[in-house]
């Protein structure tokens, strides 16, 4: 039983859930995207916390990798969102729904 770990992991879980709920309830693509990033960061928090708990380095290294990947994701994601915005003049994710059923 380690109260610090418990606290950090709980925080990560809360962050993850905030991101998750944000994805579900927000309409703006950018905000949804930010929520996803929040979820990734929650995972990062976990990595670091567990790395500390296990006394190794690999978890921390993993966090760095994740950050890089997230950055790459931002590039791709933003470019798509921008393209959609230019075509539709909106960032609402509910508007593009031509593909359905």
């Amino acid at each position: 039983m380690n109260p610090t770990l418990l606290a950090v992991v709980t925080l990560a879980a809360v962050l993850f859930c905030i991101g998750l709920v944000g994805v579900l309830i927000r309409r703006n693509a950018l905000i949804i995207f930010m929520c996803v990033e929040l979820m990734l960061n929650a995972a990062n928090l976990l990595f670091v916390a567990f790395a500390w708990a296990h006394g190794g380095l690999d978890g921390q290294v993993a966090a760095f990798f994740v950050m890089v990947v997230a950055a790459a994701e931002v590039v791709v994601g933003l470019s798509i969102i921008v393209a959609v915005y230019r075509a539709r003049r909106t960032t609402s994710v509910d508007v593009p729904d031509a593909l359905r059923l």
Partner: peptide
């Protein structure tokens, strides 16, 4: 438009 929607 469909393509962009799909990508999004």
């Amino acid at each position: 438009l469909l393509s962009q929607e799909a990508a999004l």
